[in-house]
């Protein structure tokens, strides 16, 4: 196996890219996708360390993270669809600060 630092470096880059994406982008779906990027980066590190220590716990953790990401994506996209149905046309994410509507 390659030194685990390589995988940490790649995962850090992908994580930071996702984080910057969430901060910079305003399209809600792209923000959700950047969150998925961050989750993926975490998964990569988990698998790398699981291989490093020859333990299966990392695999189980990643299994559950993928499931949780699926649930989160479904509900998040449902919310976006519901919000977009209210307002026709594009919306500004910064204006979506009220719960009413």
């Amino acid at each position: 196996m390659l030194p685990v630092g390589y995988y940490i470096a790649l995962s850090a880059f992908i994580f930071v890219t996702g984080a910057v994406g969430v901060l910079v982008r305003r399209n809600p779906i792209i923000m959700l996708m950047c969150i998925e990027l961050m989750l993926n980066a975490g998964n990569l590190v988990l698998i790398a360390f699981s291989r490093q220590n020859a333990s299966m716990d990392g695999h189980v953790f990643v299994f559950i993270v993928i499931t949780a990401a699926a649930a989160e994506a479904a509900v998040g996209l449902g919310i976006i669809v519901a919000v977009f149905r209210q307002k026709s046309g594009d919306i500004d994410m910064d204006k979506l600060s009220e719960m009413k509507g």
């Binding site: 998925e36 998964n43 291989r51 699926a70």
Partner: peptide, 19 residues
């Protein structure tokens, strides 16, 4: 490459293929 066969195919099946 990290010998995680099940998780790799689950990633393609669930993450890339459904989500």
């Amino acid at each position: 490459a990290l010998s995680a066969q099940l998780v790799a195919f689950l990633q393609i099946l669930i993450y890339a293929g459904a989500i």
